[in-house]
Protein backbone atom coordinates (compact mmCIF):
# COMPACT_ATOMS: atom_id res chain seq x y z
CA UNK A 1 0.00 0.00 0.00
CA UNK A 2 2.76 2.39 1.01
CA UNK A 3 4.58 1.63 -2.22
CA UNK A 4 1.50 2.33 -4.29
CA UNK A 5 1.09 5.71 -2.72
CA UNK A 6 4.78 6.41 -3.28
CA UNK A 7 4.59 5.49 -6.94
CA UNK A 8 1.51 7.57 -7.39
CA UNK A 9 3.34 10.55 -5.95
CA UNK A 10 6.34 9.83 -8.17
CA UNK A 11 4.16 9.81 -11.26
CA UNK A 12 2.26 12.87 -10.22
CA UNK A 13 5.28 15.00 -9.47
CA UNK A 14 7.27 13.95 -12.51
CA UNK A 15 4.46 14.31 -14.95
CA UNK A 16 3.62 17.64 -13.41
CA UNK A 17 7.19 18.92 -13.74
CA UNK A 18 7.75 17.75 -17.26
CA UNK A 19 4.54 19.14 -18.60
CA UNK A 20 5.77 22.68 -18.08
CA UNK A 21 8.66 22.16 -20.49
CA UNK A 22 7.99 23.76 -23.84
CA UNK A 23 10.02 23.14 -26.94
CA UNK A 24 10.05 24.45 -30.44
CA UNK A 25 10.14 21.09 -32.15
CA UNK A 26 7.79 19.84 -34.80
CA UNK A 27 4.83 20.32 -32.51
CA UNK A 28 4.26 21.29 -28.94
CA UNK A 29 2.25 19.60 -26.25
CA UNK A 30 1.32 22.40 -23.93
CA UNK A 31 -0.43 20.55 -21.16
CA UNK A 32 0.63 16.97 -20.94
CA UNK A 33 -1.03 14.96 -18.29
CA UNK A 34 -2.22 11.41 -18.22
CA UNK A 35 -5.63 12.40 -19.53
CA UNK A 36 -4.22 14.17 -22.50
CA UNK A 37 -1.85 11.34 -23.28
CA UNK A 38 -4.93 9.16 -23.55
CA UNK A 39 -6.58 11.54 -25.93
CA UNK A 40 -3.79 12.09 -28.38
CA UNK A 41 -1.99 8.81 -28.51
CA UNK A 42 -4.56 6.19 -29.05
CA UNK A 43 -3.66 4.94 -32.51
CA UNK A 44 -6.76 6.19 -34.26
CA UNK A 45 -5.89 9.79 -33.35
CA UNK A 46 -3.74 11.69 -35.82
CA UNK A 47 -1.30 14.25 -34.40
CA UNK A 48 -0.80 16.04 -37.64
CA UNK A 49 -3.59 16.26 -40.16
CA UNK A 50 -1.24 15.51 -43.04
CA UNK A 51 -0.02 12.31 -41.43
CA UNK A 52 -1.62 8.96 -42.15
CA UNK A 53 -3.24 7.12 -39.30
CA UNK A 54 -0.27 4.79 -39.37
CA UNK A 55 2.90 4.90 -41.47
CA UNK A 56 2.97 1.13 -41.45
CA UNK A 57 6.76 0.98 -41.02
CA UNK A 58 8.11 -1.79 -38.82
CA UNK A 59 6.67 -5.19 -38.05
CA UNK A 60 4.66 -6.76 -35.28
CA UNK A 61 6.81 -7.98 -32.42
CA UNK A 62 5.98 -11.59 -31.61
CA UNK A 63 5.82 -13.01 -28.11
CA UNK A 64 9.15 -14.71 -28.82
CA UNK A 65 10.71 -11.42 -29.99
CA UNK A 66 9.73 -9.78 -26.73
CA UNK A 67 10.65 -12.66 -24.42
CA UNK A 68 14.13 -12.79 -25.93
CA UNK A 69 14.95 -9.41 -24.37
CA UNK A 70 12.30 -8.76 -21.72
CA UNK A 71 14.35 -9.35 -18.56
CA UNK A 72 13.40 -6.42 -16.36
CA UNK A 73 12.01 -6.84 -12.88
CA UNK A 74 9.74 -4.25 -11.25
CA UNK A 75 9.47 -3.37 -7.54
CA UNK A 76 6.12 -5.16 -7.29
CA UNK A 77 7.72 -8.36 -8.60
CA UNK A 78 6.52 -8.17 -12.18
CA UNK A 79 9.14 -9.87 -14.35
CA UNK A 80 10.63 -12.11 -11.65
CA UNK A 81 11.14 -15.67 -12.90
CA UNK A 82 10.27 -18.75 -10.87
CA UNK A 83 12.99 -19.81 -8.51
CA UNK A 84 14.44 -19.51 -5.04
CA UNK A 85 17.72 -18.80 -3.37
CA UNK A 86 19.49 -19.12 -0.02
CA UNK A 87 22.41 -17.20 1.39
CA UNK A 88 24.73 -20.14 1.95
CA UNK A 89 24.58 -21.15 -1.72
CA UNK A 90 24.88 -17.51 -2.73
CA UNK A 91 28.03 -17.15 -0.64
CA UNK A 92 29.73 -19.96 -2.60
CA UNK A 93 28.86 -18.37 -5.94
CA UNK A 94 29.88 -14.97 -4.63
CA UNK A 95 33.38 -16.13 -3.68
CA UNK A 96 33.98 -17.55 -7.14
CA UNK A 97 32.34 -14.93 -9.34
CA UNK A 98 32.09 -11.65 -7.40
CA UNK A 99 34.69 -11.41 -4.63
CA UNK A 100 37.56 -10.45 -6.92
CA UNK A 101 35.89 -7.08 -7.57
CA UNK A 102 33.71 -6.57 -4.49
CA UNK A 103 35.90 -8.06 -1.73
CA UNK A 104 35.64 -11.30 0.24
CA UNK A 105 32.68 -10.10 2.30
CA UNK A 106 31.13 -7.46 0.07
CA UNK A 107 33.50 -4.63 0.86
CA UNK A 108 37.16 -3.76 0.49
CA UNK A 109 37.25 -4.65 -3.21
CA UNK A 110 38.21 -2.46 -6.16
CA UNK A 111 34.61 -1.83 -7.14
CA UNK A 112 31.35 -0.96 -5.38
CA UNK A 113 30.86 -1.70 -1.69
CA UNK A 114 27.89 -4.08 -1.41
CA UNK A 115 27.86 -4.89 2.29
CA UNK A 116 28.32 -2.16 4.89
CA UNK A 117 26.51 -0.36 7.68
CA UNK A 118 27.49 3.00 6.20
CA UNK A 119 28.16 4.64 2.84
CA UNK A 120 26.26 3.51 -0.25
CA UNK A 121 25.83 -0.21 0.37
CA UNK A 122 22.81 -2.36 -0.47
CA UNK A 123 21.77 -2.15 3.16
CA UNK A 124 22.06 1.62 3.44
CA UNK A 125 21.29 2.95 -0.04
CA UNK A 126 19.26 0.49 -2.15
CA UNK A 127 15.50 1.19 -1.88
CA UNK A 128 14.17 -1.96 -3.60
CA UNK A 129 15.31 -5.58 -3.27
CA UNK A 130 14.02 -6.38 -6.76
CA UNK A 131 16.64 -4.03 -8.25
CA UNK A 132 19.31 -6.39 -6.98
CA UNK A 133 17.92 -9.35 -8.89
CA UNK A 134 17.38 -7.28 -12.04
CA UNK A 135 20.87 -5.82 -12.01
CA UNK A 136 22.81 -8.98 -11.18
CA UNK A 137 20.99 -10.97 -13.86
CA UNK A 138 21.24 -8.16 -16.40
CA UNK A 139 24.94 -7.40 -16.36
CA UNK A 140 26.99 -9.21 -13.73
CA UNK A 141 29.67 -10.42 -13.38
CA UNK A 142 31.48 -7.55 -15.06
CA UNK A 143 33.77 -9.78 -17.13
CA UNK A 144 30.97 -12.21 -18.13
CA UNK A 145 27.86 -10.04 -18.27
CA UNK A 146 24.53 -11.81 -18.30
CA UNK A 147 26.05 -15.24 -17.75
CA UNK A 148 24.32 -16.17 -14.49
CA UNK A 149 21.38 -18.56 -14.36
CA UNK A 150 18.19 -17.37 -12.64
CA UNK A 151 18.81 -19.70 -9.72
CA UNK A 152 22.34 -18.36 -9.23
CA UNK A 153 20.89 -14.85 -9.23
CA UNK A 154 18.35 -15.83 -6.55
CA UNK A 155 21.15 -17.33 -4.42
CA UNK A 156 23.34 -14.24 -4.81
CA UNK A 157 20.41 -11.96 -4.01
CA UNK A 158 19.71 -13.96 -0.84
CA UNK A 159 23.37 -13.82 0.17
CA UNK A 160 23.69 -10.06 -0.32
CA UNK A 161 20.43 -9.35 1.50
CA UNK A 162 21.46 -11.58 4.40
CA UNK A 163 24.99 -10.16 4.56
CA UNK A 164 23.43 -6.71 4.93
CA UNK A 165 21.14 -7.96 7.70
CA UNK A 166 18.01 -7.39 5.61
CA UNK A 167 16.86 -11.00 5.83
CA UNK A 168 17.82 -13.88 8.09
CA UNK A 169 20.70 -16.06 6.91
CA UNK A 170 18.41 -19.08 6.63
CA UNK A 171 15.56 -17.30 4.82
CA UNK A 172 14.62 -18.63 1.40
CA UNK A 173 14.16 -15.88 -1.18
CA UNK A 174 11.51 -16.59 -3.80
CA UNK A 175 9.65 -14.98 -6.66
CA UNK A 176 6.85 -14.33 -4.17
CA UNK A 177 8.69 -12.80 -1.22
CA UNK A 178 11.54 -10.81 -2.81
CA UNK A 179 9.31 -7.74 -3.49
CA UNK A 180 8.33 -7.56 0.17
CA UNK A 181 11.83 -7.52 1.64
CA UNK A 182 11.95 -4.32 3.65
CA UNK A 183 14.77 -2.04 2.49
CA UNK A 184 15.61 0.65 5.08
CA UNK A 185 16.89 3.11 2.46
CA UNK A 186 13.44 3.50 0.88
CA UNK A 187 12.34 5.75 3.73
CA UNK A 188 15.08 8.23 2.80
CA UNK A 189 14.20 8.54 -0.87
CA UNK A 190 12.46 11.75 -1.97
CA UNK A 191 11.48 12.79 -5.46
CA UNK A 192 13.29 15.70 -7.09
CA UNK A 193 11.40 18.94 -6.57
CA UNK A 194 13.67 21.33 -8.46
CA UNK A 195 11.63 23.28 -10.98
CA UNK A 196 13.90 26.10 -12.09
CA UNK A 197 13.24 29.61 -10.85
CA UNK A 198 15.32 31.51 -8.32
CA UNK A 199 15.49 28.91 -5.56
CA UNK A 200 18.73 26.96 -5.17
CA UNK A 201 17.96 23.36 -4.28
Amino acid sequence: MYRNIFLFIVSFILLGCSSSIKTGDIRSYDTIDIGRVKEILLPQQALDSSWPESFGFGRSASKADIERWDIDVMPDGRGLPKGKGVAVAGRSIYLVKCASCHGQDGSGGTYDVLVSKKGKSIGTYWPYATTLFDYIRRTMPFNMPGSLKDEEVYHLTAYLLAANGLIDSVDVITQKNLPSVKMPALANFVIDDRKGGPEIK
Binding site: W69, D70, M74, P75, K120, I122, T131, D134, Y135
Partner: peptide, 20 residues
Protein backbone atom coordinates in the same frame (compact mmCIF):
# COMPACT_ATOMS: atom_id res chain seq x y z
CA UNK B 1 17.14 -1.92 -28.30
CA UNK B 2 13.96 -2.06 -26.23
CA UNK B 3 11.26 0.24 -24.89
CA UNK B 4 8.74 -1.22 -22.47
CA UNK B 5 5.75 0.95 -21.67
CA UNK B 6 4.34 0.54 -18.19
CA UNK B 7 2.31 2.18 -15.43
CA UNK B 8 5.15 2.70 -12.93
CA UNK B 9 8.89 3.30 -12.83
CA UNK B 10 11.05 0.18 -12.91
CA UNK B 11 13.48 1.36 -10.21
CA UNK B 12 16.58 0.21 -12.05
CA UNK B 13 19.98 0.24 -10.41
CA UNK B 14 20.99 3.46 -12.19
CA UNK B 15 17.97 5.42 -10.95
CA UNK B 16 18.15 4.14 -7.36
CA UNK B 17 21.65 3.34 -6.13
CA UNK B 18 23.56 5.45 -8.69
CA UNK B 19 22.13 8.61 -10.25
CA UNK B 20 20.58 9.88 -7.02
Amino acid sequence: RRIEVSDAPFMTREETSKYT
